[in-house]
Design a protein around this nucleic acid. Structure first.
Lengths: 190, 190
DNA sequence: GAATGACCAATTTAGACTTTTGGTCAAAAG
DNA sequence: CTTTTGACCAAAAGTCTAAATTGGTCATTC
């Protein structure tokens, strides 16, 4: 084959979804960008959602890779959780597609987008959960419900990065690390 | 005066806001429920928002009272934070007005309602912040940024009560207390 | 002087009409 | 044959405007 039409389509769709979001992207436009007949898209993907899902799956893989890359086995569990979560949220802010998606989810609540956001969040949860399970096995942290702990950590991170700055000065990376350290790891008890 | 028209109006408006929300409540309806001419409302309140604000201020006071009541000086700071936050969120679920308001905020983003929700959340933040400052003074907990710590605690509570059950079995009051204890107070470090 | 409801400007709603869009498929291309 | 295509269709979304509603006023009433 001269050109990989499937790849062309996926690339075109990624570009369009990143630029205009899911709802505002039309299949005709994707076809045009990909230099392909509209019908051709449907030989590879049953629906617009299926095309979207493939792209998001790819995004999730990239995200996992970025997170995994940020981990340094020689560092402590705490340090690594901080690095991974910070990297993941950084990723969200660096990639046009995630920015657009979360925006569309917030502003229009497009069902397909809401679903996909949930998938992304589940993937992050599972990633952190795995790290926690490992840390428990290696006796680096107290035993706990890994899923619940991962959930708490992520919520806290999101809150510190995205919610706090709605009413306050944004926190620096160091402040966030310190807050996580002080609250989750060290606790406040005397 | 035979009847306190102001009180009648406030009561009628409270009933209507609780039942239909802010946007779906019309001043005419409030007047009708209060058995009062529409113009009368405007002799007490300049706008619909002003009437709304008065009612919400009252709600916030009640909420503070409930929270304050739930505190037992003889118990530990941790126990009291848990009791107070649990009571506040319970309050939110017991009162038709808060239920309707948070729902309207979520679903329609009515600006006046968004503002009011922010006011409620600020009040809760300040309440907890005060308790934390007190606890630091009394040397019950480590020194920390009271506002940031209060913020983290509240976010964690909301997450554990409202967000966790979107994808999992709801947590019992005890599980929530334990999670807060384990994560915030005791920490996970070894 | 306090209370009222008819009244008004402004916003919201309803729904008829138009356009766009996801998806199909018979025909064209290879 | 298989693969690609774009005209085509039903359905969904968008647009436009006339009608209804609503927050707020104020001359009149009590």
């Amino acid at each position: 084959m001269a050109v990989d039409r499937r790849k062309l389509i996926v690339e075109a769709a990624t570009k369009s979804f990143s630029l205009f979001g899911f709802k505002a992207t039309t299949m005709e436009q994707v076809a045009k960008i990909a230099n392909v007949g509209k019908g051709t898209i449907y030989t590879f993907f049953k629906t617009k959602e299926e095309l979207f899902d493939e792209i998001v799956n790819c995004l999730i893989k990239e995200m996992k890779f970025a997170a995994e890359e940020s981990i340094d086995e020689s560092k402590s569990f705490q340090e690594n959780v901080h690095r991974a979560l910070y990297r993941i949220l950084e990723f969200r802010l660096e990639h046009q597609l995630t920015i657009k998606l979360f925006q569309e989810g917030r502003e229009m609540r497009t069902p397909a987008v809401m679903e996909v956001i949930e998938r992304i969040e589940k993937a992050v949860l599972n990633f952190i959960k795995d790290k926690i399970e490992l840390a428990i096995e290696k006796d680096e942290i107290q035993p706990c419900e890994p899923e619940l702990t991962a959930f708490v950590m992520i919520k806290m991170y999101i809150a510190l990065i995205f919610d706090w700055e709605k009413n306050h000065q944004p926190l620096t990376k160091e402040m966030i690390a310190k807050t996580l350290e002080q609250h989750i790891f060290q606790g406040l008890s005397k």
